[in-house]
Simulated scan of single mutants.
Amino acid sequence: MWRSLASNMLTFLIVALFLLVGVVLWGQSQYRAEGPLTDAICLRVDRGSNMGVVSRSLEEQGAVTDSLIFRLGADYTDKTGQLKAGSFLIRPGASMEQIVDQLTRGGASTCGTEIVYRVGVTSTEAQVRELDPATDKFVERAAFDPTVDEAPEAYVEKRSMADTRYRISLAEGVTSWQVVEALKAIDALTGEVAEIPAEGTLAPDSYEIVAGAERSAILARMQELQTLRINAVWESRPEGISLASPEEMLILASIIEKETGVPEERGQVASVFINRLKQGMRLQTDPTVIYGITKGQGVLGRGLRQSELRGQTPWNTYVIDGLPPTPIANPGLASLEAAVAPDETDFVFFVADGTGGHAFATTLEEHNRNVAKWREIEANQSNN
């Protein structure tokens, strides 16, 4: 009898073990299998939340088939305690394993709200944007100029949320004064700015920041990146260029940046100035005259007067020979590269052509014809 009972018990244990193994294997396959989600969702994980709350939210939104398997899988892989707060873009078909990895890996949120501070040549704009999971594109919810406008309600609301992301986008051609004034107006930053960085030493780019970051630290990042770019471009310069130093390259690049907003023209504009320098001609470029008037503090907002074109300032390339003493803006990488590797042309003149670009010329006669065309375009525009 005891032998029969023992035999039956052993059989039961073996069957139970096989069933347990089967259940575990099935659970593992479910944990790693493609998920049921058909449309992307943005999952928000609040600070202090736990894997149980998250698993139920995922099940309610149709991202996982079984919240229990999700929690057990997270426990089994020792990731339950690594849950991060933030907003996470869960893509269609994501497995439970992939979702757990995404929620515990850390780093910046992948969806939700971001506030972008765009520092431009003529204005600064704060944009509140939200990622639409269905299209994987950001939708603008509010925009205002933080230097002059009161913050809208949408901005105030998103500024109070812990998972809101922040970014500063610096346009090519902004001056250092403009950058500092914009940073002062960004309430997500802290600290004072001791002095305005030297013109040309800030790299136009997009910078991820965190709320509470020091303004001086952001400026230091911009300076570090620009230094790296200047050194890299100067080291890779071709032989025989007419620029004598990285400083001259930076000055010329800033003029190129202010002269054209058409990327394809940078090499041609650079060739005009290089050709003029080689021939001993004055650069005669309006942006340098404007900088001599404003010192980079704001926008002139009107056309230049003849008296200003003849005015004596260190930057007025109508009256000085060669390059001005300092950059007139913060140039981007493409303008730095154009300064040391201009197009090979005979151009020594250019003027606006009415399309946003320029008409280039090798002779004064040709240039005068281009100028006449531009004057005609200006007259037609003023009459319309």
Rank of each mutant, 00 (worst) to 15 (best):
R302S: 09
D101V: 02
P238Q: 10
M281S: 07
E34T: 06
F350L: 04
E130C: 10
S245H: 05
R141K: 15
M161S: 13
I290F: 03
G173L: 07
V180Q: 03
Q284F: 07
Q82K: 15
L202W: 05
I90W: 01
D163R: 00
P325G: 06
I115K: 00
V64I: 15
A341R: 14
I320E: 06
E114F: 07
L277G: 05
L72H: 04
P324F: 01
V289G: 01
L72E: 01
E172P: 15
I328H: 02
V262D: 11
M222G: 13
D145H: 08
K84S: 12
S382L: 14
R310L: 13
L243G: 09
T294I: 10
S123P: 07
W374D: 04
N380C: 08
L277Q: 10
R159G: 02
Q28M: 11
Y155K: 07
T77G: 12
R375D: 07
Q312G: 07
S216V: 03
R310K: 15
F347N: 04
S95K: 00
L58P: 03
I230Q: 10
V371D: 00
N316Q: 06
V64Q: 00
G311R: 14
L202Q: 04
G296Y: 05
W26C: 05
S160P: 08
T260R: 02
E150F: 10
S55L: 10
E257V: 11
T317K: 05
Q102K: 14
L17V: 06
T147R: 14
G261S: 12
G356A: 09
M222K: 13
T38M: 12
I256D: 01
